[in-house]
Design a protein around this nucleic acid. Structure first.
Length: 266
DNA sequence: ATTGCTTCCTGAGCGC
DNA sequence: TGCGCTCAGGAAGCAA
């Protein structure tokens, strides 16, 4: 389940491997995976210039004014290979380069996508996003004013990409645990110091996870096909016992599993 | 405006 | 061995 740290790790890997490569073709293996979001006729995709991340979106810019916008959703993987040999089982699309190297888009559950836009176009899904969790715009002042009068549980709002971009189920669980806030607590009932802690813990945990190449629970892999290591540092998600000795409670919230410690989180 | 439910999909894990 | 069930979850779409 790629969230901000996993996407950032993929971006790093892409930067190391495909900058400067000329795209010869983009092949869709499973229909619906790739879509061209502009009218004009394609005359080549150009050469990759820049790769960035906004929230959980990967933006691959080319020198002919295109943006390839990739979202991995739950099981999407971008795997770079020097040659197009040994295609993965759930290959949904591939990008071929002039030097015969390839970028595979492998996605078991098929929710991921590659959308291609002109750089001048507005990208609706990205325009909707709130500040990136690692940007200075995601501050405790910002979050405090967003949460004001909101009745939804704090967890749901942290998962809402229009509130803050980049967080998913795993990191929200870890952030709320470290901030000592119960996930089901209504947003408007949070104290100012709790909001401050949430933001502070977010700014701590995400870079830690990036340092460890993200979290691999089941599917996530970086561009080399390697797993992350941050799963070894999780304290609450998927755990049964808290470090304080208390049993961890597991509930369903908004259709997602939520883990918390009723002793450590208030 | 906000909220919360359903949908998309496949593979793993489980009980029988 | 194999069947059927449940679960995992990001975000869009929709209903209240």
């Amino acid at each position: 389940m790629p969230e901000l740290p996993e996407v950032q790790t993929v971006v790093k890997g892409l930067q190391a491997n495909i900058i400067g490569k000329k795209i010869t073709s983009i092949i869709e293996i499973r229909s619906g995976t790739v879509s061209q979001k502009f009218d004009s006729k394609i005359t080549g995709y150009g050469t990759i210039e820049k790769i960035t991340r906004i929230g959980k979106y990967i933006l691959i810019d080319t020198d002919v004014g295109l943006h390839l916008v990739v979202h991995l959703r739950m099981t999407g993987k971008l795997i770079f290979k020097q040659q197009d040999l040994h295609r993965p089982q759930h290959l949904r699309a591939l990008i071929e380069f002039y030097d015969n190297s390839v970028l595979y888009f492998d996605d078991t559950r098929t929710f991921g996508s590659i959308n291609i836009y002109r750089k001048t176009q507005k990208i609706p899904s990205i325009q909707m996003l709130g500040p990136d969790a690692l940007s200075n715009d995601f501050s405790s002042d910002y979050l405090w004013q967003v949460l004001e009068n909101r009745k939804a549980p704090i967890k749901n709002l942290l998962l809402d990409q229009s509130v803050v971009a980049g967080l998913g189920n795993i990191y929200v669980a870890e952030i709320l645990f470290r901030a000592q806030v119960l996930p089901q607590k209504k947003a408007r009932h949070l104290k100012h110091y709790e909001v401050k802690r949430i933001v502070a813990e977010t700014k701590k945990i995400l870079p830690e996870a990036i340092k460890h190449n993200g979290t691999t629970i089941s599917d996530y892999k970086n561009v080399d096909g390697k797993s992350g290591e941050f799963q070894n540092f999780l304290r609450i998600y998927g755990k049964q016992k808290c470090q304080c000795g208390e049993n961890i409670t597991k509930i369903k919230q908004a259709g997602r599993s939520t883990f918390y410690c009723s002793k450590c989180q208030k």
